[in-house]
Design a protein around this nucleic acid. Structure first.
Lengths: 191, 191
DNA sequence: ACAAATGATAGACATGGCGTTGAATAAAAG
DNA sequence: CTTTTATTCAACGCCATGTCTATCATTTGT
């Protein structure tokens, strides 16, 4: 019984609902978008929306989850090929992935998007940073590290947002080179 | 005719409405707070709310404006005393101001608060940074500067949020010293 | 190709916030 | 003390919500 979710009707419904919400998020932020709006944009009955999602935020969350999985899949694939992945290579892969999903990412990570989502993507580098700090400073001043990490993490987010908002004109390589310099610079003021 | 806004009744109404909203923002973010909620919390008739504000966001905006004026007034006062204000001194003043308005700032700049507001406060340092960049590099690469500034500005915001969220345990002086190091470090990777 | 299963639709429902209005009441200003 | 003006109370139409039913359309597996 492959029944449940493989029904073509379900797939179509979910697809247009996602497209509908993404389209609306070009103009409005998630909290101001109504279920009725989405269904109108998707050409779907309002009752059908509730058959699959609780509210617009729930739908957005599932869209983000898909993108997150796409990014993670790409990275773990590289990792599985035996290559030990450095922070820079990891970021390079992430940026390429963002470029590959250009339209979607410009919305999800743009001005109406969710900062928490980008924060989550970058959090994976935190451990790498912590190790390099420990290695050079010997002992870790947790308080100081928290402040420096807050600076670097949010700085990176801002830089990436600037790149996205600017239309992704620069190459992922350029972005990584700037990001690497500026992160090292900020970090080495302490390490 | 001191008529219009000096009426004691108006002042009282605005006061309790502001307190009401701020109270609610301890638990919820602005977009989920209803006019009815605020009026219930303030003990004010719903119709009266619309006599002064368009919606909850409008009320929040006016609260932020007041705080912004407080901060700016303190800084321009120092400036008027003839002291040329460096970026560090400016930030020190800002942080002291934030500490003086502890409860309010923890909400306005906290997890349910508005990032744009903090961004606006920090924007005043942009010119100072631009000048120092120009001075050392001679010629300004606008693209590169945009990326570096995006990093530093957002990094600073994150660091300050970390401070606020942590209960403002460290002194403004400590904060400035870390911020100065890490900003210089990030900047000098280019300058 | 057909019958059973299941998803989508249209329509209705009570609920609750919105934004506005008008008349009555209370308090401030001169 | 009289005039002015802010607040209250009650009601209004409007719209989105979340739920539910009967009906229709499509898919599925045999």
């Amino acid at each position: 019984m492959p029944g449940k979710q493989n029904d073509r009707r379900v797939q179509y419904t979910k697809m247009v609902l996602k497209q509908g919400l993404v389209g609306l998020m070009k103009e409005a932020k998630i909290d101001t978008i109504t279920v009725t709006d989405i269904c109108k944009a998707a050409g779907v009955n309002r009752g059908t929306f509730y058959a699959h999602y609780n509210d617009p935020a729930d739908l957005l969350h599932q869209i983000e989850e898909e993108l997150f999985d796409t990014i993670r899949a790409t990275l773990t694939k590289k990792n599985a090929e035996g290559v030990p992945v450095s922070a820079n290579e990891w970021m390079l892969g992430t940026f390429q992935c963002i470029m590959d999903n250009r339209e979607l990412c410009q919305i999800l990570l743009g001005k109406n998007g969710d900062v928490e989502f980008l924060r989550r993507v970058l959090r994976i580098t935190k451990d790498l940073l912590y190790d390099s700090y420990k290695q050079k400073a010997g002992e870790v001043d947790e308080t100081q590290f928290a402040y420096v990490y807050a600076f670097i993490a949010n700085g990176s987010i801002g830089l990436i947002q600037n790149w996205i908002q600017d239309g992704m004109k620069e190459s992922p390589e350029f972005l990584v080179s700037i990001l690497d310099k500026v992160r090292k610079g900020a970090g080495e003021a302490f390490f």
